[in-house]
Write a protein that binds this DNA or RNA. Structure first.
Length: 310
DNA sequence: CTGGGGAAGGGGCCC
DNA sequence: AGGGCCCCTTCCCCA
């Protein structure tokens, strides 16, 4: 059983529940949209303590619910307040129970949902195939008090288990392509597969970045979309152009508090301010001489520091 | 030669 | 996703 507790809600795998008595159409891609469907409006749920029954004894997979519809993927619904209080399995063999856990565990997204042993494993759970006609989950949902084993007359809703965006490596399902891309790129901390993180490389210089946004930002250094209206010099970012324009206007908005000097660039002011200190920011750890800039320290250590050179 | 200033590049974060 | 901003860094020039 995978836990997605550490995943942002929208990035968790989503299992889709559709209110319909029709047979499951496994050929159609699952609609995993986070947008609330009109016929699934959570506002129609009269109470939040639902009894769910999964019935796989018929040809179509169904979940029965004593309440109209539970929509865990509704963006407006609170996971904490709208969890079903009971789930009952009916007509399942050991393998089907295990499969239910594999899917419903992600669907309901509760780390509290303890899976049974996989079929054929050494630690077979007790035979729960018949127990008042229903199979209770060994561990239900913490914090929801009603653990009655007797569901009320169920309303049948259909379950589709065909994900639209599925990770081919680990099988996790996502509601959107971007969700899957994020998963493949960075991986949920709770994920147990070990894919290599995807990188985005620049076609022009082969530099690589760990996000498309970072790559796009880098590409601007090649395209240089920001042009100076005065001299025509091009820059990668607007604020670089802004700083450049100050060289034309002579504007120096960053003034030193220690002296009267002013600078067009904040970083240059910061470097200048270091010159006022007896002990400057960048200290040689061998001879204790300090410098206002790292470049000076590096230069010192490379050529001038007698201790370093020796 | 050294230190400082000017200009610019670029990653990361926040909105 | 993109812009703005912060911060650090680098390169070049000059006194």
């Amino acid at each position: 059983m995978e836990s997605y507790k550490s995943c942002p809600l929208k990035k968790r795998p989503v299992f889709y529940v559709e209110e319909s008595p029709a047979p499951v159409d496994f050929d159609q891609p699952q609609d995993l949209s986070l947008k609330r469907k009109a016929d699934h409006d959570i506002s129609t749920v009269p109470h939040k303590r639902n009894n769910f029954v999964l019935d796989l004894s018929s040809t179509s997979s169904t979940i029965s619910s004593t309440s109209p519809v539970y929509r865990p993927d509704s963006p407006d619904s609170s996971f904490e307040s709208e969890q079903p209080s009971n789930i009952h399995l009916r007509g399942l063999n050991q393998s089907e129970i295990f499969n239910f856990y594999q899917t419903a565990g992600s669907f309901f997204n509760y780390q509290h949902l303890t899976p049974p042993s996989s079929p054929g494993s050494s630690s077979e759970p007790e035979d729960l195939s018949v127990r008042n006609g229903f199979i209770p989950l060994p561990v239900l949902f913490h914090g929801f008090g009603d653990y009655s084993m007797e569901p009320e007359t169920p309303k049948i809703i259909k379950v589709k288990d065909t994900p639209r965006f599925k990770c081919e490596k680990c099988g996790k399902c996502y509601s959107t392509s971007t969700g899957l891309q994020k998963h493949e790129q960075f991986h949920c901390p709770a994920a147990d597969c070990n894919q290599v993180k995807k990188t985005f490389s620049c076609d022009k210089c082969d530099r690589t970045y760990n996000s498309m946004g970072a790559l796009k930002m880098h590409i601007r250094t090649h395209t240089l979309p920001c042009k100076c209206p005065i001299c025509g010099k091009a820059f990668s970012r607007p604020w670089l152009l802004q700083g450049h324009i100050r060289t034309h206007t002579g504007e120096k908005p960053f003034q030193c508090k220690q002296c009267d000097r002013a600078f067009a660039d904040r970083s240059n002011l910061r470097a200048h301010e270091q010159t006022h200190f007896d002990v400057k920011k960048y200290v040689c750890n061998l001879c204790d001489k300090s410098f206002s800039r790292m470049s000076l320290l590096n230069k010192h250590q490379a050529t001038n520091c007698q201790i370093c050179v020796v």
